[in-house]
Design a protein around this nucleic acid. Sequence first.
DNA 1: TTTCTTAGTGTCAATAAGACACTAAGATAT
DNA 2: ATATCTTAGTGTCTTATTGACACTAAGAAA
Lengths: 249, 249
Amino acid sequence: MANLNTDLLTPSVAIDCVVFGFHENELKVLLLKLKNIDLWALPGGFVHKHVDIETEAHNALELRTGLDNIFLKQFHTFGSIERNDTDHNKMLVDKKVIPEEWFPWFNQRFISIGFYALVEYSQVKEPIPGPISEACEWCSVNDLPPLMLDHEHILTVAHETLKKELNNQPIGLNLLPKRFTIPELQSLYETILGKKLDRRNFRRKVMSFGILVCTNERRTGVAHKAPLLYEFDEASYIKANEAGLSSGW
Amino acid sequence: MANLNTDLLTPSVAIDCVVFGFHENELKVLLLKLKNIDLWALPGGFVHKHVDIETEAHNALELRTGLDNIFLKQFHTFGSIERNDTDHNKMLVDKKVIPEEWFPWFNQRFISIGFYALVEYSQVKEPIPGPISEACEWCSVNDLPPLMLDHEHILTVAHETLKKELNNQPIGLNLLPKRFTIPELQSLYETILGKKLDRRNFRRKVMSFGILVCTNERRTGVAHKAPLLYEFDEASYIKANEAGLSSGW
DNA sequence: TTTCTTAGTGTCAATAAGACACTAAGATAT
DNA sequence: ATATCTTAGTGTCTTATTGACACTAAGAAA
């Protein structure tokens, strides 16, 4: 996208992706550092006229992560008129973040479809910056750099959605490596929820989902008692995901 | 909208509203009958350039129902390219549903933001058709007329969302009249869920929410034992709505 | 006044959730 | 080598929630 063929794009429509990863007991999110300015942005982009929005979101993430099979879910569409900020767009031109000829396109009123993605941190070898960014990095959700426009709000809504999703479905298959320990899974839950959980009750509950398979092997070369490694049983995991966890009515 | 000033509209973006009502133990939805053709559509419309999408959805519904304080919630955005169906749009012109000069606008690739609304059936005196429709009527969700494009899909997703919402929050304030009986509330739940619930357990559960106030008056002039009338305690209702019902983690 | 239908209530059993304490095993320091 | 530290792994008891189920009360209609 060194050039921008706006004839091929759907006007007024953008997508923004909140890519969550889990590393060193922190919930991370993939952010792009804009050129020439201390401002960061969510990965995303525009929607080609002949491409489904879900496909476009996948494509955007493949460009940044190199991964082509990412778990992705639409969570909200942001359509406030305040998202259209002419001063902000002029500033992007002034600072040479975008070329001047892109200004009319960027200065449209956009509505943005928000997706969140869950990826295994270690599989993203080297996040790839895009045409208007000079870096692509994992940032801790608890220590965010300044974000452009309403991107911090989008990120917050995505995080809230993820928290709620924990009550409806298991999470972990897309965020953890193939093999993991129960304490690691618990740490993931605690990190997303931002609170501590009881070890014994956590184990009992996740085991009751019937989606974990014990490999009978242990994580070696680690301090203290070697924990057992587990894997998700994918069939059961998918079934639990579809059925939902909470019964309700 | 006898004329269509497309300069004022956000290109490519539409909204569709699934308006639920409850009447005679049936879940109803407000639909527009297109002119000159046996095809129905969800109320909705386009988004003015200077108007928030939520506001636009409210406006669209006020035009159809005369109500200006409708409960409205965004639930999904539909962005499949198959929504852009040139043959369908040509047909709309042929049948004089839309004037020929509107064809270019209608034939854009649209993404549509879906909202669902909950309204008290009896408050909508006379639903008002729009410029491309000749009737606006309540239709039973279980007995739908033929719908244009993917509107039946949109409706189904809205209904699924509503079912899930029952597990997270109380429902009824926006769908029932001010005073109602517990059996009526149960009937609403059963209708949305499409299944029978145990009377005693239902009463126990909804009472435990702490959102119902007994008026100590009874519904008179009704067959059989006169049931007690209840009201929602709005403050508690709103609090329950925000806090959510299921604890989960 | 008898019958029919719906409203309203209570109990018991099963399940799920929360609180809590000990033993096991590996790593490190002495 | 052994003592110490830290995390892994397990079980029980209590309480709260859920599901199943049967009777009495009141109004309408026959």
